[in-house]
Structure formats: structure tokens, C-alpha cells
Design a protein around this nucleic acid. Structure first.
Lengths: 157, 157
DNA sequence: ATATAAACCTAGTTCATCAATAGGAAATCT
DNA sequence: AGATTTCCTATTGATGAACTAGGTTTATAT
């Protein structure tokens, strides 16, 4: 199950996409300007989430360059790309560690040597594939505009 | 993520489907015959799983009539239906409690009142739907015969 | 310079859940 | 009676989730 880490990260990214500026536009990276950075206090307030906890979560996003953090007065966080260039899968994978539903699919865990004759393995594999395609097929921009890229996504039911 | 509970339950059900008899055939329920029950000792040995732990897991499956348990000498467990009449979704839902990937989708948890203006909710909802369709579209018989019912399931990659 | 505001860093805390174990009670056979 | 089996209650140890606390560094505003 997706924990608060992944869900909070998504909410922060969406918040930044809606309330902040970006470092990059169609013509490439823009110079970083102070003032376009949003302090975490503000986001935490708006989203009703503990600031201290968010710090931990945003750390990994900064380290992987999904966000730029700037210290000091006037500092804060901003996106490094435009919203259509972030997939949900990327954000969730970083914050959750993995999107895999069973441990035997984890890259780090090659311990299950029953794979070859395991009746359930192909099912997990297939589901894993579906999950990957689904979340890497949706961008921040899609969520903001209330649409998904997945063709087979109908709205009803 | 699916825990050992769900995965072990699946393995036991598959084990019973392959090594045991059923209580029901095309013409409906058969009389219960002692001897067609498989003792848990045997299954635990075959699967290499702690018997005591399996007892806990099988309890809920018996309570919901997916399995019949019979005490005493010559007793054990057996399926109450034929393998094509069990879906993986049913087994996982019972043993895992839920298949939902985020807590706000849980029936029991109606606490998230931001649903209406939550940008991520439709995505979780859609994924939940996909997950449900996937696992409720596969039966024990499908796994045994190495096929899925899902039309869009190709073998490659 | 100094105060202020911000990200960054290291650690600890509390609580629940996972994955089992342990020991017996009840049922059913030979 | 004795063996074998499920069924039932309780306990444990480890792990991770979801924070919380307190400080350090970096940068700006006055």
C-alpha cells in the first residue's frame, strides 16, 4: 500500500506546480530566481501536514533533482521541470522505494529461487507491469487537469 | 504490498487444488468423505511453511467457506469448490483484508473528506478498479494451467 | 554586523503490524 | 485409550511507519 510518504510527496509536488514557478520552460532551464521558491512552511500549512515530516520526504526528491531547494531568507523549494515532465511513477518510486506488490519482484531481492516453477510468479509479474505502465503513464500535469494518459481509462464506475 | 499471508494462502489453495479432492463437481456438492482431506502437516512440509502459522491463515478461509476443515484422524482441509470457481481476488481480499493501494479507498475509512477536491483521488480510484478487475479475473485454475483470463495479457516482456 | 528566515542534518520516540511460536482444547478416527 | 487432526487464545521479537526534537548551515534584510 502507498504510505503517507508517497502521498504527501505527490501533494507537495502538485502544490508546487500550482503555486510555484519552475526552473525550466520550453526553451530549457531558466536562471534560478529567488522569490519563485516556496518555503516549506507555506506548503505544510496549505496541505495541513507536519513541516518536519515533509522535510524528510522532500530530501530524497531534492537529491534526485526533482526539486531544487534554496536555503536562507527568501529560499524554499521549486520544481526543476514543468509538471508534464514528472510522472507519478517516478515520484512514487523514489519516495516509496518501489512500486512492486510482492517482495520477489524487488530488484534487490533475488532470494526467491522458486521463480521458475512458481505458479503465481507470472501473475505478479504481469501485475507489476500493469502498475508500472499505469503510474509512469500519468504526469503531474495530467492530475492537475483531471485527465490521464491511459487510453483505456473511462470515467464511469 | 501483498504479505506472506496472502501469498501463503494462495500457495495452500494451489496445493490443495493439485493434491486434494473437492467437495463439489459439476452436479453440485458431493458428500464429504474422510480421506479426501489433506492434513496441514503435509501441505506445510510440501510448501516449506510453518504449520502453526498456516493454521492462522487458513482459519479465515474456513470461516468464509472457501475451505472445509475436518478434525480428528483422517481429517485435514479440502476445497469446497472446483479451482475454476475461486478467484485470486477473493482469496487475497480475505487474507490481506483489502486490495486497496491507498487508505482513503478502504470501505471502513471514510475519514478523508477531501475526496471531492483531491487531485489524486481519481487516479487511486482508477488504479483500484484495475487491480480489482485483474485479480478477480484470474482463478486458481488459470494459475494451475498457466493462463490468465485478462485479454490484454501478453506473455512477453 | 546582526537578526531573521529558510533548508539541511542527525537522532530519537511511539505505535502498529508482520511473521511467527507456544500450549492447550475439542473432535474424530482405529 | 490413544493417536491424530483442527481449532482457539495468547505472547513474542523484529521491523517499519509516522512523526518529533534540536541543532547547523546558508543566505537575505536592516
Amino acid at each position: 500500500m502507498v504510505s503517507t510518504k508517497g502521498r504527501y510527496a505527490l501533494r507537495v509536488m502538485l502544490d508546487l506546480a500550482q503555486h510555484g514557478g519552475f526552473t525550466e520552460n520550453i526553451n530549457g532551464p531558466l536562471p534560478i530566481e529567488r522569490g519563485s521558491f516556496i518555503p516549506l512552511d507555506e506548503i505544510a500549512d496549505r496541505q495541513g501536514i507536519s513541516k518536519k515530516y515533509l522535510e524528510i520526504i522532500l530530501k530524497v526528491l531534492v537529491q534526485h533533482n526533482l526539486l531544487k531547494g534554496l536555503r536562507g531568507k527568501g529560499g524554499g523549494y521549486k520544481l526543476t521541470r514543468t509538471p508534464e515532465n514528472y510522472t507519478i511513477g517516478e515520484i512514487l518510486t523514489l519516495t516509496e522505494g518501489s512500486l512492486s506488490i510482492v517482495s520477489c519482484l524487488q530488484e534487490t531481492d533475488g532470494t526467491c529461487r522458486k521463480k521458475s516453477d512458481c505458479l503465481t510468479f507470472p501473475m505478479w509479474k504481469k501485475f507489476d507491469q500493469m502498475t508500472h505502465d499505469f503510474f509512469f503513464g500519468i504526469t503531474l500535469a495530467d492530475l492537475i487537469h483531471g485527465r490521464f494518459r491511459q487510453a483505456e481509462c473511462s470515467e464511469d464506475r
